[in-house]
């Protein structure tokens, strides 16, 4: 009896904690937006963060994109060949990359490459009381530290996802056309006939934008909210990666069902 009561009590505490955190995250987001002015007027703060989250992620994004495209080319050709439509390889590679894989995989990589670093940085600042020190000097830590990192992520992510898709298409082309010997003209022309700029590519860009904002928000929030101990910091970093991955995959399902359902 006592054990059951304890279990229910613990469940209640977890639920209350969860709701409290969501509410805190929402208030934090509003606060972040209200203090974003400085990250635009002092643009070099944001530029610095674009360097750290965007430029330094370039290599991993481009190499992963190339390999994902190459694997798609190999596997896709294998299957399409059975139905005698190996020429449609370009369509398969480009549609799966621009619609789904580009934004999602780039988002996951971005979360583990850049989001994690942001959480660690802000968390360590909090642990070593740098954020409090800023507050004492009448420098708002949200405007000075958090907002530029958020906007840096939001701006970097769509560019990285576009690069990922472009490299993937090149990877698919490399395997399909150069190594396997699919006709070069058929590869590109069927791709261009099937991929619509507004429908496929812009929806992919919108997706990557949403994922970028989600990952950046989760990263800065977990860093700002972490328990200021070594253990709390490590937990916050873990939570950033796990929550970002889950949020990206769940949001991707929602966005896909809104954008592509019932059309072609």
């Amino acid at each position: 009896m006592n054990g059951l009561l304890n279990f229910i009590r613990r469940l209640g505490a977890t639920a209350v904690e969860g709701v409290w955190r969501i509410g805190f995250a929402a208030r934090f987001f509003v606060l972040l937006l209200r203090h974003s002015g400085q990250s635009l007027t002092r643009i070099h703060l944001t530029v610095r963060e674009i360097y750290f989250s965007g430029v330094l992620s370039l290599l991993i994004i481009m190499v992963s994109g190339l390999f994902v495209g190459m694997v798609l080319g190999l596997q896709g050709y294998e299957t399409l060949q059975r139905y005698g439509s190996g020429d449609a390889l370009g369509v398969l590679v480009s549609l799966s990359l621009t619609r789904e894989l580009g934004p999602v995989v780039a988002g996951l990589l971005f979360a583990s490459r850049a989001g994690l670093a942001v959480t660690a940085e802000i968390g360590l600042m909090k642990t070593t009381e740098q954020l409090d020190a800023m507050d004492m000097m009448a420098v708002n830590p949200i405007a000075r530290v958090v907002a530029p990192r958020f906007w840096g992520g939001v701006i970097s992510m769509p560019l990285l996802a576009a690069l990922f898709s472009a490299m993937g298409v090149l990877g698919g082309w490399l395997i399909g056309v150069v190594f396997i010997g699919v006709d070069n003209g058929a590869f590109w022309s069927q791709m261009q006939a099937a991929v619509d700029f507004r429908f496929d590519i812009m929806n992919g860009v919108i997706k990557s934008f949403v994922f970028g904002a989600t990952v950046a928000l989760i990263a800065v929030f977990e860093g700002y909210d972490c328990t200021p101990t070594a253990e709390g910091l490590s937990r916050a970093i873990t939570r950033t990666v796990v929550t970002s991955a889950l949020a990206i995959l769940a949001l991707d399902f929602v966005l896909t069902s809104l954008m592509f359902r019932g059309q072609s």
Partner: peptide, 29 residues
């Protein structure tokens, strides 16, 4: 700061180039 700006500018340019590649070479724009 100038080096930083250079790198970010480079990043933005190749990101935009990727988008243009997708629009014109992959898509039907």
């Amino acid at each position: 700061r100038t080096t930083l700006d250079l790198w970010v500018g480079f990043f933005v340019i190749i990101g935009m180039a990727a988008l243009i590649f997708l629009a014109f070479k992959v898509g039907n724009l």
